[in-house]
Design a protein around this nucleic acid. Structure first.
Lengths: 133, 133
DNA sequence: GTATTTGCAAAAGCTTTGCTGCAAC
DNA sequence: GTTGCAGCAAAGCTTTTGCAAATAC
């Protein structure tokens, strides 16, 4: 996986490991901080360049989580099955969940529009159990 | 609709009309240009402030169309039925389509996570009929 | 007359780019 | 040695903010 035609350096390995090891999608700020905590001095240009590379090679997914917490993006490993991202507009927590019916949706998009889906970003805003009244 | 507790001024009316009248989601740049063409000198600060207001009041939806064409956002009226946005990674065209199974997905999210969906952003990237080989 | 909105300019994110030196092969 | 990578600083975009003037009620 870490070698789908991408030449891996220590920085790239670290960044991919951080993204894959995280419990939640990470933004560039978080990646920089975590990297420094591991003793590796990362530059933001390197982080952006690495993310672009990993995206191109299908190793990470980009989200914006409805911009609940600002204008930036968040990165996570590509999951086995397409996921929904549930962003709680109350507390800001993000929950992930396998997307039911995704395969059927994809099929219908193909059938009705002749459109072949290769990537999907599905973010739902609302209120989690705790934040509902 | 234009008065769900939002005080409407001529600028707000124009912006809402532009968004509602457009065939495709518009970004801030396009709104500024269209507004000026209508003879109304708009400032970008006003556009951003108005969009924020319209979003809060549930009058417009925000998309990023997978950032195919840059870093900005796109705005469209809230549709009657939840839509999918199909972004062609070949030619950049955006097609909208009613989201099949959306109601079931919402129900399952509610059942499995206790999460109540109020807004959704669903953007699929891929290749349209023309761009497929 | 008071409250809200607008325009302008400046500032604040986030992301990209040019370039130089460094590391890998 | 050649090729590609990393660091640094600067620039580019999008978006937000402060404040004074204009507008709405």
């Amino acid at each position: 996986m870490a070698s789908d035609g991408v030449r891996m350096t220590s920085q790239r390995r670290l960044l991919l490991a951080l993204i894959e090891g995280a419990r939640r999608p990470l933004d560039v700020r978080a990646l920089l901080e975590l990297g420094r905590r591991q003793g590796l001095a990362l530059d933001k240009a390197t982080v952006y360049r690495t993310i672009a590379l990993l995206k191109e090679h299908g190793l990470v997914d980009e989200l914006d989580l409805l911009h609940q917490k600002g204008a930036g993006h968040y990165y996570e490993p590509i999951p086995d099955k397409q996921e929904l991202h549930l962003v709680c507009l109350g507390c800001g927590r993000v929950v992930e969940m396998a997307c039911p019916h995704f395969e059927q949706v994809k099929k219908e998009v193909r059938r009705r529009q002749g459109f072949q889906v290769t990537t999907a970003r599905m973010e739902l805003g609302g209120y989690c159990r705790r934040c509902r009244r």
